[in-house]
Design a protein around this nucleic acid. Structure first.
Lengths: 224, 224
DNA sequence: CGGAGGGTTGACTTTAATCAACAGCGGTGG
DNA sequence: CCACCGCTGTTGATTAAAGTCAACCCTCCG
């Protein structure tokens, strides 16, 4: 019930014209709460998420935390810089991964097609991070939460009658640390969206998008 | 683009045994205020800054602006995603650039060494953006400004007696939009740092770092 | 000399954070 | 099986931080 809809994942693959080969594929699984790597670890592997959800985080000395990204199926994680990882990464649900050796991908010796994929993934990542900047720096709490829900709707939403269902495997605290808010504010903002009938909250970790257009226009700051 | 200290850049060159050839190098210059590209333009070129400073920005419909990065010498700008630029880019001082055709860099046909450079630049960019996330999402206004000044000190600071001088070619409004603050808050925060004798403000666009250690510990959230 | 734009400062408002209480659920063990 | 504990989430009251609105200054330039 946690896991991201497999059809979504297949589509992502189709879009990218990536047909994974059985040969030369190393896969692994990761249990919830288990770390894939920590900030400062030497970065020898690059991973592609095939199912589940990862959480990439950074911490300040005093415990303040920023969730950099959630790694959904189709995402690549573990981009190295100067040979090291610059975030912690752990699983929030059981997760399966394809493992690539960094040396295969980064040096000229490796497969050119794999190379291409890494570069494309990095460029997509940069673009996604640019959206995230605008969100962190310039949006209000409702706009942040609406943006977050829209992204998830577009990526991993599943149709449910006339509406779209989105599962939120992460805690409120994860959402808060992703959006640069507190858990209390996230909670209040959910309540606000629920009371204005834009979303319904099914179970704590399942929301139903009732008015996608309204949600999107909030996300983009059109109403104020 | 945000943090890459210049020695780093030189080392990267050495590591890769890339000595840019005069041949096949196309350069250009850009006057202050002139745009290099706009959000949504097809991304056919990738640029390396050789002198000057660029500003990369994104806008919301209602005019709210986020400065994504400043492009200093050694930085690469114009990373495409889906074939388009996702930010505006203009010069804030006279700027010179090396121009690369995207097709040369991104497709398998191009020079493998150039390929490598693009990938490295993209990975550095991702790492820098991760710092910026923490700053936007979790730091207070003083911490933000201190972080900004530290990065500039490390990258482009020039020794001045016992101290370090940093020039700020961008306006207060650019700094505000980079840090997710208002110009008023930036101004007040400069005053605060000036009054506590951590920096001195020479000319509007030149600051002198009097207590780098104090500034760094504020930036990292050690004092509160 | 005068005007425009960028920057600073002050007074006040708004937003989200903080502090605190409590509800719901899920697991554990008596 | 039920009681209790601990964790996550919600809600309320209050506070703190940054935003807004406004006045003013300074400098650069025509």
């Amino acid at each position: 019930m946690y896991v991201t809809d497999p059809t979504q994942f297949v589509e992502t693959y189709d879009d990218d014209k990536i047909v994974p080969e059985i040969t030369h594929r190393r896969t692994m699984t990761l249990k919830p709460g288990k770390h894939l790597f920590l900030e400062g670890d030497p970065a020898n592997r690059i991973y592609e998420v095939t199912s589940g959800v990862l959480r990439l985080t950074r911490m300040l000395e005093d415990g303040r935390r920023q969730v950099i990204a959630f790694g959904y199926p189709g995402d690549t994680v573990g981009f190295p810089s100067d040979g090291y990882y610059h975030t912690d990464c752990d699983a929030i649900v059981p997760t399966t991964l394809v493992v690539h050796r960094r040396s295969d991908l980064e040096t000229s010796k490796g497969d050119a097609a794999l190379h291409q994929r890494l570069l494309r993934a990095a460029l997509r990542e940069i673009s996604a991070m640019q959206d995230h900047f605008m969100m962190l720096g310039r949006k209000s709490s409702v706009e942040k939460l609406a943006s977050f829900l829209m992204v998830l709707t577009d990526r991993v939403g599943t149709p449910l009658g006339d509406f779209t269902q989105v599962s939120l495997p992460m805690t409120r605290s994860d959402i808060a640390d992703f959006l640069g808010l507190t858990t209390e504010t996230v909670s209040r903002t959910f309540t606000q969206l629920r009371k204005s009938k834009i979303v319904a909250i099914d179970h704590i970790n399942t929301v139903i998008i009732l008015k996608p257009k309204a949600l999107r226009s909030i996300a983009e700051g059109q109403d104020d």
